[in-house]
């Protein structure tokens, strides 16, 4: 099977002032269909820069990015944007919803942009809103929603174009624990349905949903391995008194 995403020796150097600042220094990463990869690391380790590059929101300095077996980084900006609309869903910490559009339209738009017919886009909107318990909020403005609801809308929007790859950057970054739980459940569900996910997070609960953990440090991958699950039993058996 083809990898959903492949990055080869990916480098990003920011050149703000006189001194070039390397943010990502030669990352190799391959993600298979259906995999859920969490990316962790201290702030400044290059996590956000990496996923922004993978999603085409930031240009790479050198290296290669392949999406569904197609080289993406050499595309023109507009061709990259087109590919992104079709193949990638993005969830950010700050939901980035279009404030003067309804919740429903926010979800429907990406499907339309990706080239779905109005009928298909509408169906997709309705099934996603229903799945996320947001049907009765479809006509509301994003600002009328709680943070957790807005993040669910953002997730629905990211999934509207049925992306090959869902990229998430701190999706629970400013949510309280109840709202985090909602987003957690949804991520877990879409992952079970086979959605490929790459997610940057500091939140251990969210990260623990992943199959695989990539640790970044100083712009490089310093660890890449599976998250092993071990124990079953009741709370009293699993959690020891110390």
């Amino acid at each position: 099977m083809n990898a959903v995403l492949k990055a080869v020796n990916l480098v990003k150097i920011y050149q703000d002032g006189a001194v070039p600042v390397p943010a990502v220094r030669g990352v190799d990463l391959q993600v298979e269909p259906g995999e859920f990869v969490a990316i962790m690391g201290p702030s400044g380790s290059g996590k956000s820069t990496l996923v922004h590059m993978l999603g085409g929101l930031d240009t790479r300095t050198s290296g290669e990015i392949w999406l569904d077996g197609k080289r993406a980084d050499t595309l023109s900006e507009s061709a990259w944007a087109l590919l992104r609309r079709k193949k990638i869903g993005f969830v950010f910490q700050f939901f980035n919803l279009v404030t003067n559009m309804t919740v429903g339209d926010n979800v429907e738009l990406p499907a339309l942009l990706a080239g779905a017919s109005p009928k298909v886009a509408r169906e997709r909107r309705e099934s996603l809103l229903a799945a996320l318990n947001l049907t009765d909020r479809a006509d509301a403005a994003p600002a009328q929603l709680s943070g957790g609801e807005q993040q669910r809308v953002a997730l629905a929007r990211a999934l509207a174009n049925q992306p090959s790859l869902l990229l998430a950057d701190e999706p629970t970054g400013n949510l309280d624990s109840r709202n985090t739980r909602d987003v957690l459940r949804l991520l877990s569900e879409v992952h079970k349905e086979g959605q490929t996910i790459i997610m940057v997070t500091h939140d251990a609960r969210v990260a623990s949903l992943a199959d695989r953990l990539v640790s970044l440090f100083d712009g490089e991958i310093v660890d890449d391995g599976r998250i092993a699950r071990r124990r079953t039993g009741t709370a009293g058996e699993v959690i020891d008194l110390r």
Binding site: A204, R205, S208, S215, G225, I227, R230, R231, A235, V238
Partner: peptide, 29 residues
């Protein structure tokens, strides 16, 4: 550090499963 981080996340994953299997009425747990 890297090995320990993955170990902790494995435990966290177990706790996530445990939480989803625990009845909402089992408040103390």
């Amino acid at each position: 550090i890297n090995r320990q981080r993955r170990h902790y996340l494995g435990i966290m994953s177990d706790l996530n499963d445990l939480l989803s299997r625990t009845a909402p009425t089992d408040r103390v747990a």
